[in-house]
Design a protein around this nucleic acid. Structure first.
Length: 461
RNA sequence: GGCACCGUGGCGGAGUGGCUACGCAGAGGACUGCAAAUCCUUGUACCCCGGUUCGAUUCCGGGCGGUGCCUCCA
């Protein structure tokens, strides 16, 4: 079997991937806090790790990959949003979790195997805290339960920071009940009008970091294969997860591979500057196919920063037009079942190098365009589709991509009539009339393509 | 201030110690009634300065420039 190489943040280098159990490859990706619409930046981890998941599924079998992506449905931000809108906390969380799922679905993301919610895991969180307190890794103070960072020697290993540096650089006010400025909250007390759960330390609610540790343990076990998230989560979130889980599990490491995607920067064009709401996935989907957003997020290597602007989207659309153009041309042919081409697979196996993989995808498109016999064409189409499937690209109906299906019947009839009229004019070699009709079609945002077997049309992008 | 990352042709963006990335845009050609699509060809890219080397965009050091994180933002 071919082997996958992944860049492990903990080791700061690429490492060959070896799962603990080939029949159950476990992966946990930190999900959103559902208090508002998700930003396009929020979509980068789900898209990137969706590709990784597909690759793992290809290597080990789709049923052997268990992906857990949590939903944080209790948080001060949700409480604030609920207060503002007058809705209940649960209503806000449920609503935005639903919208989040819809957004990801539009981006072609396979739903995670498990989608644990924080509020469903209060008991495991309390149990984990109890173990930490019993083991001397956490302490109660004024209704809070805090993790004692000094109790975990390796604290800072992931982010490569020393405790001393952190204390020296600390620019936050230190709560008086903390034994050490870097201690973080596992549990905090809730006021009577705030949501809370009973615990041995009083009524309260969990801290963010604890949620992920407890959910990961509950569903995937004490040590998992891959833990992923945005690079901004390295510190403190993942550092704290490691501290909690390791100390609660007698020193067992939490994850064998830590993967982090680079940040998505907002470009300086009006798109992000103006209202600040145009970069919401929800809004972008009104102007662009989800696949364009997905592909745009994959144009840069997942660890590299990516600058987001409207130019990127326009270019990405043109690129995908090329893929769908060839698929449309071969639409009448049944794709020959083919395996994923080697060069394409190799690119993805090398730390999920999606830009490289995409260049291979274009090479496959070129091959398909140049194929001469029906046999060659069918095989080329099969290869292109098989490769695209691993990245979640090129799987849609080409006609739909070019706007042929989503059009009202009246408009459609008018276009067909014009196409026919032009065809007759061309047969009569009445070029003036043919061009006139084409202008008319262009005015309707329709591009006509003349081929050896007649004319086809598509919506102008 | 501390830690980490980055600087490639018009734009986006891979990669490599010496050989074409790729896509978009541009130029020329083929095909076509003309377009479009497609195919072919094309652009003397690798922040600056040292060092290592037969040879560096690629390794090392320094500089300049940009970015992220530093208690709950993916």
């Amino acid at each position: 079997m071919k082997s996958l190489t992944l860049y492990d943040t903990m080791a700061r280098r690429k490492r060959a991937f070896e799962p603990i159990d080939q029949d159950r490859v476990t992966m946990y990706v930190c999900g959103p806090t559902v208090y508002s619409y998700a930003h396009i930046g929020n979509a980068r981890p789900p898209v990137v790790f969706d590709v990784l998941r597909r690759v793992l599924g290809y290597l080990y079998g789709a049923e052997s990959v268990v992906l857990a992506a949590n939903i944080t449905d209790i948080d001060d931000k949700i409480m604030a949003a609920a207060r503002e809108s007058g809705e209940g906390i649960e209503a806000v969380a449920t609503k935005f979790a639903r919208i989040y799922r819809e957004d990801l679905d539009a981006l072609g993301i396979v739903p995670p195997t498990l989608e644990p919610k924080a509020t469903d895991h209060i008991q495991p969180m309390i149990a984990m805290m109890q173990r930490l307190v019993d083991g001397g890794h956490a302490y109660a103070a004024e209704g809070h339960v805090l993790f004692s960072v000094k109790s975990y020697e390796a604290y800072g290993a992931l982010s490569k920071r020393s405790l001393d540096d952190m204390i020296a650089g600390a620019r936050v006010e230190v709560a008086p009940y903390k034994k050490d400025p870097c201690d973080f909250v596992l549990w905090k007390p809730s006021a009577d009008d705030e949501p809370g759960w009973d615990s041995p330390w009083g009524r309260g609610r969990p801290g963010w970091h604890l949620e992920c540790s407890a959910m990961c343990e509950t569903h995937l076990g004490e040590t998992i294969d891959i833990h992923g998230g945005g690079i901004d989560l390295v510190f403190p979130h993942h550092e704290n997860e490691i501290a909690q889980s390791t100390c609660a599990h007698g020193g067992k490491s939490m994850a064998n591979y830590w993967l982090h995607n680079g940040f998505l920067n907002m470009g300086s064009d009006k798109m992000s500057k103006s209202l600040g709401n145009v970069a919401l996935i929800h809004d972008l989907l009104k102007s662009w196919p989800g696949e364009v957003l997905r592909c745009a997020l994959l144009t840069a290597h997942y660890r590299a920063p990516l600058t987001w602007n409207s130019d990127l989207l326009a270019k990405t659309r043109r690129s995908l037009d090329r893929i769908y153009g060839v698929l449309r041309r071969l639409g009448h042919l049944e794709a020959a079942p083919g395996d994923v081409p080697e060069a394409f697979l190799d690119a993805l196996l090398d730390d999920i190098n999606t830009p490289k993989a995409m260049s291979e995808l274009f090479a496959l498109a070129g091959e398909a365009n140049k194929a001469e016999t029906p046999q060659e064409k069918a095989e080329a189409k099969g290869r292109l589709l098989a490769a695209g499937a691993l990245m979640g690209l090129g799987q849609a109906d080409p006609d739909a991509w070019f706007g042929l299906t989503d059009i009202d019947p009246e408009e459609r009839a008018a276009i067909d009539a014009l196409i026919l009229k032009r065809q007759e004019a061309r047969e009569a070699k009445d070029w003036a009339l043919a061009d006139e009709v084409r202008d008319e079609l262009n005015a309707r945002q329709i591009q006509v393509d003349d081929g050896p077997e007649g004319s086809t049309w598509r919506k102008m992008g």
